[in-house]
Amino acid sequence: MAHEYPFIPGATTVGVVCKEGVILAAEKRVAYGYLVLSKAGKKVFKLTDKIGAACAGMVADMQMLAKEVAAYASLHTMETRRAASVNAVAKVMANILFERRLFPLLTQTIIGGVDDEGRRIVVLDPLGSLIPDKYACVGSGAEIATGVLESSYREDMTLEEAKELVIRSIKVATARDIQSGDGADFLIITGEGMKEEAVELK
């Protein structure tokens, strides 16, 4: 995405389903072309108590999108008196994205979380396609991160193992992708709830 449009910052964003829950992670660099504009960009977002999003692309777009989806999700919860499912949250985001097909929000998103049906992640493109998967990477470092993730991923990984793997894949991507780096934000979601963590990449 970032190769063709210099005004879109690159990113390495990863989502993984493991035995106990879901891990979402994104590195923190915001770079326009070769200029590192920020080393503290936050690309993971809480949407509900047990659902989060990790994004790549235009930072403004992902922030507004996350806010809007989080608002819809909380409205849904108030109206139905139960927590929104990962599918429902993903679909609402897909609809918002597809509504703007002619003037798209330039973001790729991984939505992940835990609901009654289990642990799942879903990947969305700028136009709002919805593709469920067990592990996924988006952003300019996705190709590199996928290589690492794919070689070691197992569905029965523990949370700790999965976290180590995600760190390793982001590390490799930040080593080879100029537009990714400066540490990573994690969103670790289990049946109990959500935990935010920042990891330094050395």
């Binding site: 897909a94 994205l97 597809f98 097909r101 990947v123 493109d125 136009l127 709002g128 396609s129 919805l130 593709i131 998967d133 996924a136 996705a142 190709e143 996928t146």
Partner: peptide, 30 residues
């Protein structure tokens, strides 16, 4: 780049009706 290895391209529309898709995923899903 292979973004997904298990993408769904046959969609059930009704018990007697289905659709296969090729092209932009968002457009097709809509």
């Amino acid at each position: 780049f292979i973004a997904h290895k298990k993408g769904k391209k046959i969609h059930k529309i009704d018990d007697h009706l289905a659709m296969t898709i090729a092209g932009a995923v968002a457009d097709a899903q809509n």
